[in-house]
Amino acid sequence: MNPFSFNEFQDQVDEVLIRHKSILDILTKLQESSSKINRAVAKSVTDCGCIQVHSQKQSAPTDISFSELQNYLTNHVEGYLCDVCKEKIGEEISNNIFYIAALCNTFNINIDDMLANYASQLKTLGTYGLL
């Protein structure tokens, strides 16, 4: 399997994006694709039932460090996506990434550089950079 390159993907997006080239089209398609991800996850719960969501207030002991907090928090998802739901959610996430790449193209932002910069920031700041 060949290594994947976001640069190649970004170039491919630039080649095929014709109809929705306007920044307004890109922004609204990005929002629409985010909604479709939400809908696909919801349908995995309500229609398929392969996963369940059991949400409640997150709680953790008060005498732990911030870095230990992740050991006490949950994503509220129980079960595993079936193959059909996993494929559908993957398709919707891919579509979302397509429009993110289109947005990067519009503003001449190299996606590999952007992600490398963000990864470096995460490495330097760790979880504190997400506050």
Rank of each mutant, 00 (worst) to 15 (best):
F107L: 10
Y118P: 03
Q12H: 10
I64H: 01
E15S: 12
Y72S: 05
S65H: 08
I18P: 01
N38E: 11
Q52A: 10
I51T: 03
V13P: 09
L73G: 12
I111Y: 09
D11T: 07
G90K: 09
N95W: 01
M1N: 01
A42V: 05
T62R: 09
D14H: 15
D83I: 03
E78C: 06
L73N: 07
S59K: 10
I37S: 02
D63W: 09
Q70A: 12
L73S: 08
T46Q: 11
S67T: 13
S5W: 05
Q12C: 10
D112T: 10
C48K: 08
I18C: 03
Y99E: 04
L122E: 13
I64V: 00
Q56S: 15
N96C: 07
N7Y: 08
I23F: 04
T46A: 11
N71D: 14
S65A: 13
N105Q: 02
I18R: 07
R39S: 04
T46S: 12
N7D: 14
S22K: 03
L69P: 10
D112L: 09
P61C: 03
A101Y: 03
L27W: 11
F66Q: 04
D113A: 14
A42N: 09
E91M: 07
H54C: 06
R39V: 11
K43T: 04
K36F: 13
P3E: 10
L69F: 11
Y118W: 03
L103F: 11
F107W: 02
I93V: 14
E8I: 12
L81Y: 15
S34D: 04
S34G: 13
E87M: 14
T28Y: 07
T62V: 10
V41Y: 15
K36G: 06
G90M: 04
P61R: 01
R19F: 09
L130N: 05
L125Q: 13
D47W: 01
S59M: 13
I100T: 01
P3A: 06
H20K: 03
L24K: 15
L27H: 06
I23L: 15
Q121I: 12
Y99L: 08
H54F: 14
T74C: 11
Q58G: 03
L81M: 14
E87W: 08
E92T: 07
V77P: 04
A102L: 06
P3F: 04
P61D: 00
K29Q: 14
L125R: 07
A101P: 00
D25V: 02
S55W: 12
I89H: 00
N108Y: 08
Q12R: 08
L24T: 12
A116R: 07
L30A: 04
D112E: 15
Q56E: 14
Q10S: 05
I89D: 00
I93N: 03
K57L: 14
S65I: 05
V84K: 15
E91F: 05
I89Q: 01
H20F: 11
D14M: 13
Q12D: 13
C48W: 08
F107N: 12
A40P: 03
K86A: 06
L73M: 14
L30Q: 02
D14L: 13
I97T: 02
D83K: 15
T106P: 00
K43M: 12
I111D: 01
